[in-house]
Design a protein around this nucleic acid. Structure first.
Lengths: 216, 216
DNA sequence: ACCTGAACACCGTTCAAGT
DNA sequence: ACCTGAACACCGTTCAAGT
């Protein structure tokens, strides 16, 4: 029943021998393409041409697998860029680039969140924010509050964004939501009915917070 | 093998006949006490003294069960109170009371979020916020941005709070996190090392946003 | 050291069958 | 109308056994 090669590695495909790193690679691919619900030990093993128990040898049980994948996401998605000259626009650029990176892989962010590693994911951005606010002359007590405030903003909008994507369909039209209130003017109703642009909302709130911190 | 009563209802316990409402009641109890991972159709049926397939008759499959439970949470956790005289403190009180209600059942909030019903959960608060900001003379375009900004703040801090609870232990002490940066003063390091109080952080950010909206 | 196969204890779900 | 039991196709995990 054995394939001819003898040492040809698992699955008869002749690739390199299985390793923790290769298992995590394959897990990452499943995670991105099929989502976390479809990431199973057995399916992962199948894709690698190996018995399910081989996974246990290289990475441990499912919890350890998810931890390993979260660690990869942290290394891969944590990087942020800084642009601009004045402190306000530099801080804004950090938060914006972090948000955009995270929005590229909402499934990956959800995994990190589930594993309780969000703090680690944010650490590079946190460092940069502290650096910029220090350079801008903001005092320590304010920095200690302002940095998590900005990061909260990012995670909040990213998690909600993900939600809106999955929401299959509006159950009520925006107008219906407000109709029976009575006290709204037509002008207000018009504004409330237009769906809010997520990017615009983020920029709006971020601008308020950063300006309040840097230019008190 | 049958119990003596004949029409004594399922499970031989003699209670009222099974209904959709009773199934959801039991599901709610499991959800709050054991968490969403332990909420299974079979376990639920077992607790009701009934075959697993009976659940399907009354509420449908697992997706329908979770939807039904989310709807209950929305009805039960959506209510908010308004306090204070001036517009700023009234708006702040709405956001604060919503946050505190949600923090009482983080598992329940997580379920609503998973089912994509966060918007419905927030609807009562949204209504009140629009009402208060209108009374405060804020224009429609600003209201349309400010209301979701405040709600984003709430959901962001609630979801992160939940995260911190589950995080088993700090992997690094706060000091270690910053040690190799060099550019921090001891005073800044002291502020960064103290863990941020969630409530203080929320009040801080909320205050900034609400004041910027109401007193521009 | 690395991997397989069988086995166990769970899931959700369907369906024919009972009353 | 309401409920059961058996069955199917999945899970994660353990463990003895192979090379």
């Amino acid at each position: 029943m054995a394939v001819g090669g003898g040492q040809a590695g698992p699955g008869g495909e002749g690739g390199p021998p299985l390793s923790r790193s290769l298992v995590l690679d394959a897990g990452m691919r499943i995670l991105e393409s099929e989502g976390i619900d479809r990431l199973t030990i057995r399916g992962l093993a199948g894709k690698l041409g190996v018995a399910a128990t081989a996974i246990y040898w290289h990475v441990g049980d499912k919890q350890a697998l998810l931890d390993g994948l979260a660690e990869r996401v942290i290394d891969q998605l944590g990087d942020v860029s800084v642009r601009g000259r004045d402190p306000v626009s530099r801080v804004v650029s950090i938060a914006t680039s972090l948000r955009e990176t995270l929005l590229e892989g909402p499934e990956l962010v959800a995994l990190v969140h589930r594993q309780g590693r969000t703090a680690a994911l944010f650490q590079p951005a946190r460092r940069l924010l502290v650096q910029e606010l220090t350079a801008a002359g903001v005092d320590g007590a304010t920095i200690a509050l302002a940095v998590p405030a900005v990061l909260n903003l990012v995670i909040g909008t990213v998690l909600l964004d993900r939600q809106l994507e999955r929401q299959p369909a509006q159950r009520q039209t925006p107008e219906e939501l407000w109709l029976d209130d009575g006290l709204q003017t037509p002008e207000l109703l018009r504004h409330l009915s237009r769906p809010v642009d997520d990017r615009e909302l983020f920029d709006y709130t971020l601008g308020i917070v950063v300006r309040a911190v840097v230019e008190p």
